[in-house]
Amino acid sequence: MKVSSRCLGPFAVGACEATIAKGMYYMADQAHAAPESGSAGGTRREFLYLMTASAGAFGVASVVWPFVSSLNPSKDVLALASTEYDFGAVQPGEGVTIKWQGKPLFIRRRTPEEIAKAKEADPTVDPKDPTKVIANPAGLRDPQTDAARVQKAEWLVLVGVCTHLGCTPQGEKSSEMRGEFGGYYCPCHGSQYDTSGRIRKGPAPLNLAVPPYTFTSDTKVKVG
């Protein structure tokens, strides 16, 4: 008495109940079990089908993976993931915009006044855990100390994408609008950032992002 495999799974139809019941009856009654339909034969068969189906599923999954993986950035795209820039020509108070991973990157050389202004608005943080903010006198929406956002105080490296809806803020060149806080001003909806790139006014929720970077020499920085 074989239990048809179509009686397994979500597509089982009503008639299968009788079949399964009969199968169970036979499995229980060893004395009447024909050699072929013994419980051992039945479960061995189901095991074989399960093994084959599982192997098939594993095969399908291993074939799907390369397809999905091909959508990830390819090697030539990854090779351009980091950019090196020589900033030797940038004057204090000036900034340059370069392209990094398809996005604008701000590199600004800050004057001592700009650095001081940034530090003035610093929140007080727990020295043991800099992410824990104890006091925020300037009312920063996204409280961060200036020191946490730069490696060398003179050099501000930021991703030039407004955290509101993605426009490019103005302010890299001293001829552009820098807003009330002397940092950056986003013309789309009026978000204003300070000299540390922190959001001070306007709809943006977060500070301008700081990308991963290292100084490879006194005049070169590698971003990404």
Partner: peptide, 20 residues
Amino acid sequence: LFLVAFTLLAYAAKRKVWKH
């Protein structure tokens, strides 16, 4: 290797189904 194993399993399953 996978395909050899899978084909052997599939063959065994096929024989089992077709036995009668």
